[in-house]
Amino acid sequence: MKIEINGTLTEVRADTLDAVLDELGHGDDKVATAVNETFVPVAARRQTALAPGDRVEIVAPRQGG
């Protein structure tokens, strides 16, 4: 199915958030996630099912002012 990953429409095989992160190569990266503008904590990724067109944001620590 196609979902939006950080604003880019992307074809993925997995259908849960934790599996999509694995598929995208995040492994055990220090990242935080949101689906359709709602925060999804690490503990909830496995139970978070994704549907075509869902908007997934994956962020990591960065420089800030």
Binding site: D29, I58, P61, G64
Partner: peptide, 8 residues
Amino acid sequence: VSVRREAG
């Protein structure tokens, strides 16, 4: 610090 998008 901040958070920003990260690719796999």
